[in-house]
Design a protein around this nucleic acid. Structure first.
Length: 264
DNA sequence: ATGGTTGGCACCCAA
């Protein structure tokens, strides 16, 4: 195994619609592994060729028609571990792999949770909370050093959103979601690599709505995407970056990639 | 206070 490992995570909002900017990211950043969320494609027609051409010959795909979907593309060997269904409804929102150095990589797409932050009025919000609760139980059982990355759809800290007060009732930043995520973090002692390298209260966003005239000028962002590591693995992380310029690329995703590098 | 955009797919749903 290499003594360095570079991993990227990106909610791509359709890998087919954005294959050109995925290629641009791979050429510019050359990560060893890319974790994608919201691929929105069944495995049969996943655009595997571009990844193969750039050396990402190890591919673990988990998609369905229309919605959701996750994938891991890698230049280094990996072995599929599991694909957990934390909603028990068949939606493809997780894949886990084992790398040659023994550590586990988990790629997750937490449900957005709908618009109304009340599980009695909005079942999707309840499903989101249940999903995080089951991830918490799973976190308690982990023995091997693990990195979990993806779109958690929760921005926990005040400095993770453009306005803490105005988002207190907005799904992604409600106290009940923040509390649920804190419970998951405590269940394994997960280290939030984003806030290790970019400490609060520094501004840190990974998502900006499409529904803004000028996303950069209004800058109403949220930190929905995360990279969390087991303590022993977190100690090996050397860099972490948020690739904010990708939000300005042609036909962008509404999320930007996160990058982490390890030295072993 | 409301509506604003996007992708997939087949008309509006989820984000």
């Amino acid at each position: 195994m290499n003594d360095r490992l570079k991993i990227a995570s990106w909610n791509i909002n359709s890998v087919r619609a954005r294959i050109d900017i995925v290629e641009r990211l791979l050429r510019e950043e050359e990560p060893d592994i890319l974790c994608l969320q919201e691929t929105k494609v069944v495995n049969d027609i996943f655009p595997t060729a571009m990844f193969h051409q750039l050396g990402y010959t190890h591919q673990v795909l988990h998609g369905q028609p229309m919605h959701h979907g996750v994938a891991i593309l890698s230049r280094v060997p990996m072995r599929e571990d599991d694909r957990l269904d934390w909603q028990a409804n068949g939606e493809p929102r997780h894949i886990g792999v084992q790398l040659e150095n023994g550590f586990r990589l988990e790629n997750v797409y937490v449900p957005a949770g709908g618009d109304i932050p009340d599980r009695t009025l909005n079942p999707k919000f309840g499903q989101k909370l249940d999903f995080v609760e089951r991830m918490t139980r799973w976190s308690e059982t982990l023995k091997t050093p693990t990195l979990i990355v993806g779109d958690f759809n929760i921005a926990p800290l005040e400095s993770d959103v453009w306005s803490h007060k105005q988002l207190l009732d907005v799904v992604s930043h409600t106290p009940i979601e923040v509390e649920a995520l804190a419970g998951m973090q405590a269940a394994h002692g997960w280290v939030d690599l984003g806030r290790t390298f970019i400490p609060a209260p520094e501004r840190y966003y990974s998502w900006w709505s499409y529904r803004a005239k000028d996303w950069a000028a209004s800058d109403r962002g949220r930190r929905l995407d995360h990279m969390w590591a087991s303590p022993q693995l977190a100690a090996q992380a050397t860099t972490h970056r948020v690739l904010e310029p990708c939000r300005s690329w042609t036909r962008p995703s509404d999320h930007v990639p996160l990058i982490v590098e390890f030295e072993f």
